[in-house]
Amino acid sequence: MTPRLVTLDREDDFEGWRNAARSLAASAVPAHQVVWQVGDQRTDLFAGAPVDLATTRPIMVPGDFVRIARCALLHSEPQRFALLYDLFLKVLDRPSLVRDRTDGLVHKVGALSQAVLRDIHKMQGFVRFREVQEEGVCRCVAWFEPDHHILRASAAFFVNRFAAMTWSILTPKGSLHWDGGRLLEGPPARRQDGPDADTVEAVWKTYYAATFNPARLGTRAMMREMPGRYWRNLPETSVIRDLVSGSAPKSGR
């Protein structure tokens, strides 16, 4: 049998993956016979027949699987579509498998999903808006570099929180623009596309420095929760060096 080729529209194209997975499963195509790719970038030169996405009758899988798959699919791991299809077939065979975290495949997919959730959580915390004036109107613009394909999945959080503001979030994988009523998607951006300063940042750094308690110095916990790769987009991290060097352990008083 020639391998089947599935072309997804986007890196986070869950609907596309699900439709393809249903069709493939309906024709009992085994996981190793499918090549997954996004857009035109060929992942396997010898892959053949495209999949016919004729509608098949809906296939039922446990809600737990859909939840985990939706998250894991956003991971930057190139093998994620194949892993998920492999798990999909196994879960069709035995629905309870998805709750068995001692299973190697469930464990692996679960870890992808966890990493994505963590990335989303970090984005919610670490996006930093800078205010710019655009024809007399304020717009808040942030530059952020997520690890995974989470931009679209994170949009609702920022819309719900900053609904009355106008804002943009720029990332290397795409951008979001909210005008107070509509959300528009834009192309990938570069760091220099965003503003490089904000007047409130100096006040924020003052707060950051003052709330630090030098008697409790513990940089390891800080590094674990705020790894170095985030630092260049967090203005407050520029004062860390001074805070730490000024806080050598004091022996008594």
Binding site: H121, Q124, G125, F126, Y208, T211, F212, N213, P214, R216, L217, G218, T219, R220, A221, M222, E225, M226, L234, E236, I240, L243, V244, S247
Partner: peptide
């Protein structure tokens, strides 16, 4: 949601 961590390890 934790928005930053200071060098005392607290959020």
């Amino acid at each position: 949601i934790c928005h930053a961590y200071t060098p005392d390890g607290r959020c």
